[in-house]
Design a protein around this nucleic acid. Structure first.
Length: 817
RNA sequence: GCUGGGGUGGCGAAACUGGCAAACGCAAGGGACUUAAAAUCCCUUGGGAGCAAUCCCUUGCGGGUUCGAUCCCCGCCCCCAGCACCA
């Protein structure tokens, strides 16, 4: 092989610095957004700029998305690949509190560090369009977006519970509550009711659900659509009225077929009928129970597997089906937020009701019977199945199969006006209020005269004031509420005394529309530019983590739908294609600060180069599954690049025409082009890299340095190792950027060998292989096999029962004993 | 508990979704070059038996379907992620 000239050695730091400078200077990564003939919007989930900087998990995700964008570009698309920073929110705020540095000072520092690292990694980012959600030029439009929803009637205010730490006297986000306790002091968290802003996402539940199945609008990872479907949680059931002394108690059930088995009712502790149904002697016990429940936070109350608790109201209600009076109980296993906040207890056919009935000695009546059972069969455990079950103890409905009984009972309820068939969702409206500092102030002004008044668009942004005491405190409201000089303003309508909303909005509102802003960062008079958006959206490819499968991705879809319905967007589904990437783990555990196994990329990039690092990340496992990060793995891809480097130096030393009998290498060449192209399109990066390595090994084995093959190899390598490929391209005499070169085509006929080796099995065990021309008939292959001594050994003297032949693949001779 | 994804050599993984299990890479061992080391190059490497050609076993466990199963079906075990009393 070649001797090493020091001048010609592959030095990644020099190569990478050279090309990063050149890309910037030549504006290689800055597409013309107004005239792109084949626009391809390559989006990846923007990071939260933590103080620690990028970790290898971020690098994995961004590199995978960047590889795809670079591939699309080489295939002839104009690719827009922007990057930004999701810099508002509780993470930044908490970290700033911990360090004692104001987030407004900390965040720009972190962003600068992220940008340095992202550039060093070699992403094809168009930095002209960088954005940060904390920039007033950005959140001005987040506030504008709130106003659009407000004007559309999709924003409203209502009382809702927040987590409250009685020791720290502060509002806590759900992620700050660990097993029902405050993450800082360990005190059990309580619920407090506050007036908060909500978006009516539940109005869109059906459309959000239906579009998931519409292939013309959405091509998403199945795991993500399944998660969304579960989150929306559509259920078909009936609402039934149970008359009581305090009026009808409305109950929602998905199992109206079990109505005759309803032997009690249970109300949520917050249910408005609890008071009227509880007579004076029982008040004290009831209030004590309700107080005990309220002192537990939302999180711990939802934890299942808990011993059932409850109190009898002292009243009864009428089961409209059986005509019997049944007791009304109160228990915290019934949630006010779902259904009607009241349930019909059917202990024989529901696990929770069964546990409750057992605990409090309530009657259990079987109304569904399986094969070999009847109405008198005891109920040792709740039977929740319907398949193969029939109704029993259900009056005139008895003996109907369960599914038919369900329809008949709903029809009867509607006819007799006891209830109606209903659809429910577990999706709740989106609470966007945060009693925090580090977010965009919600642009509403409260006037004693005019009520809530939206801030006029001309007055946006409502700037977040620079205050030093931004910590949440015992006032129970946002830190902004402590600053009169900020929140006291004249009413925009009447000019009278008024005050601002002091809550800020949820970070997820910032990220629900950022893909629109990227396209329009240079316009300060509009949230997004209609022409740009028309050309570039919906987003062609979106890659991100499945931890955002429900919240971010659902909210973004909802916001797009609202804007679409207002005639402000031409699509209702923002992301045509979404793929969830896997996660990098370290020593079998997910990287996290608490485990102390977070890996920072800088040292690896310094040692091996960004290109080797990128290749290693893409090679360590399937992109959509992730894999284990190991230091030792880095040398493999680096050695590969070194060998390609040497091959480029030897280009034309021995060309293909001068090589005899090298049909094999030509086939390998064509196979590689096919495999790499298909692998990149399907995000099978690890196998695409393996195919490139195989081609290199094959060329080295036959000492082939054919120019066309080396050029193809370098182009196919470019998405993974962009700087390296540029340098090789230049050394090969290529003009301009390699990313303006043409992706190699393959000849399908040359992807297969003319002669194949067909394995010959006897009774399913491979005994030999025979060489035959491709496409040989069964006759030819059997004849060849019958001449093979290794086969004869196992077939001799035995009757041939069956011959299985799969063309070019396998021959199996089945013989008797 | 429910939903989704997994379980294949010493390790990361591949295998046209029924057709030669272990491609590609790491690590390890042996050899070449070198005063020596690193780097590089060549060979070996799933387990077992055998001088060998060759044979037997092997994709978490137990069954099944099939000429043939890592792949399909039934019943279990374990790991990871998300959701978690949603009536």
């Amino acid at each position: 092989m070649s001797e090493h000239h020091p001048d010609h050695e592959y030095r990644p730091d020099a190569v990478e610095a050279k090309w990063q400078a050149r890309w910037a200077e030549r504006r290689t990564n800055e597409p013309d957004l107004d005239h792109a003939p084949r626009p391809f919007y390559n989006l990846m989930m923007f990071p939260y700029p933590s103080a620690e900087g990028l970790h290898v998990g971020n690098c994995f995700a961004f590199t995978g998305a960047d590889v795809y964008g670079r591939f699309k570009r080489l295939r002839g698309d104009t690719v827009f690949e922007p990057m930004g920073f999701d810099a508002f929110g509780i993470h930044s705020e908490n970290f700033a509190i911990k360090l004692g540095i104001h987030p407004a000072e900390l965040i720009p520092r972190n962003i600068a560090n992220f940008r340095r690292q992202l550039t060093r990694l070699g992403g094809m980012f168009d930095w002209r369009h960088v954005l940060a959600t904390t920039d007033p030029a950005y959140y001005k439009w987040t506030q504008w977006l709130f106003l659009q929803l407000y004007q559309a009637g999709k924003a409203y205010k209502k009382k809702a519970a927040v987590n409250w730490c009685p020791h720290d006297k502060t509002v806590l986000a759900n992620e700050q509550v660990i097993n029902g306790a405050c993450e800082r002091c360990g005190t059990m968290v309580e619920q407090r009711l506050l007036e908060q802003w909500f978006f009516r996402i539940t109005e869109y539940a059906d459309r959000l659900l239906a579009n998931l199945d519409d292939g013309s609008k959405m091509d998403w990872s199945p795991s993500t659509t399944i998660a969304q479907r579960n989150w929306i949680g559509k259920s078909q059931g009936a609402e039934i009225e149970f008359p009581s002394d305090a009026g009808p108690i409305r109950v929602y059930t998905t199992r109206p077929d079990t109505l005759f088995g309803g032997t009690f009712l249970v109300l949520a502790p917050e249910h408005p009928l609890v008071d009227p149904l509880t007579p004076a002697p029982r008040r004290e016990a009831m209030d004590a129970y309700r107080k005990a429940v309220a002192s537990r936070d939302l999180v711990s109350r939802k934890v299942g597997d808990k011993e059932k608790t409850g109190v009898f109201t002292g009243s009864t209600a009428l089961n409209p089906a059986t005509g019997q009076r049944i007791p009304v109980w109160v228990s915290d296993y019934v949630l006010m937020q779902y259904g009607t906040g009241a349930i019909g207890g059917v202990p024989a056919h529901d696990e929770r009701d069964f546990a409750f009935a057992r605990k409090f000695g309530l009657p259990i009546v079987r109304v569904l019977a399986g094969p070999g059972q009847d109405g008198a069969t005891p109920v040792p455990e709740p039977a929740v199945e319907t398949e193969g079950f029939r109704l029993v103890n259900s009056g005139s409905f008895s003996e109907l199969p369960a599914s038919e009984g369900l329809r008949a009972i709903v029809a009867w309820l509607e006819r007799e006006r006891h209830g109606t068939g209903q659809v429910r969702y577990r999706l709740h409206d989106w609470c966007i209020s945060r009693q925090r500092y580090w977010g965009p102030p919600i642009p509403i002004i409260y006037c004693d005269h005019c009520g809530p008044v939206p801030v006029p668009e001309k007055d946006l942004p409502v700037l977040l004031p620079q205050i030093d005491d931004f910590r949440p405190d015992d006032s129970g409201v946002s830190p902004l509420a402590r600053h009169k000089e900020w929140y006291e303003v004249p009413c925009p309508t009447c000019g009278g005394p008024a005050h601002r909303e002091t809550d800020v909005s949820d970070t997820f509102l910032d990220s629900a529309w950022y893909y629109l802003r990227y396209l329009s960062t240079e316009f300060d008079d509009r949230a997004y530019d209609a022409g740009r958006v028309a050309r570039w959206t919906p987003v062609a490819s979106y890659i991100g983590g499945n931890e955002h499968a429900v919240l971010h991705l659902l909210y973004s879809r909802f916001i797009a739908m609202v804007l679409h319905d207002r005639g402000q967007l031409h699509f209702e589904e923002p992301f045509r294609k979404f793929r969830a990437h896997g996660h990098i783990v370290k020593d079998g555990a997910k990287m996290s600060k608490s485990k102390g196994n977070v890996v920072v990329p800088d040292q690896y990039i310094a040692r091996w180069g960004a290109d080797s690092f990128r290749m290693y990340l893409m090679f360590l496992g399937p992109f959509e599954e992730g894999g284990d990060f190991r230091d030792e793995g880095m040398s493999g891809p680096r050695r590969f690049l070194d060998k390609v480097w040497d091959l480029v130096a030897e280009c034309d030393r021995q060309t293909l025409s001068g090589v005899e009998l090298q049909q094999g290498i030509v086939v390998k060449w064509n196979q590689t082009k096919k495999k790499v192209t298909e692998g990149l399109e399907g995000l099978s990066y690890n196998t695409a890299i393996a195919a490139l390595m195989e081609l290199l090994n094959a060329m080295r084995a036959v000492n082939c340095a054919e120019r066309r093959m080396i050029k193809d190899l370098v182009i196919m390598l470019a998405p993974f190792a962009p700087h390296f490929a540029e340098e090789c391209w230049e050394r090969l005499g290529g003009q301009g950027s390699i990313f303006d070169a043409k992706w190699p085509e393959w000849d399908q006929a040359l992807t297969v060998e003319p002669v194949v080796e067909v394995p010959v099995q006897v009774n399913g065990k491979t005994r030999s292989r025979v060489q035959v021309p491709r496409g040989a008939s069964e006759k030819v292959v059997v004849a060849a096999a019958n001449r093979d001594p290794a086969v004869i050994r196992f077939t001799e003297g035995k009757p041939l029962i069956k011959v299985v032949y799969v063309k070019d693949r396998l021959l199996n001779l089945v013989v008797g004993p």
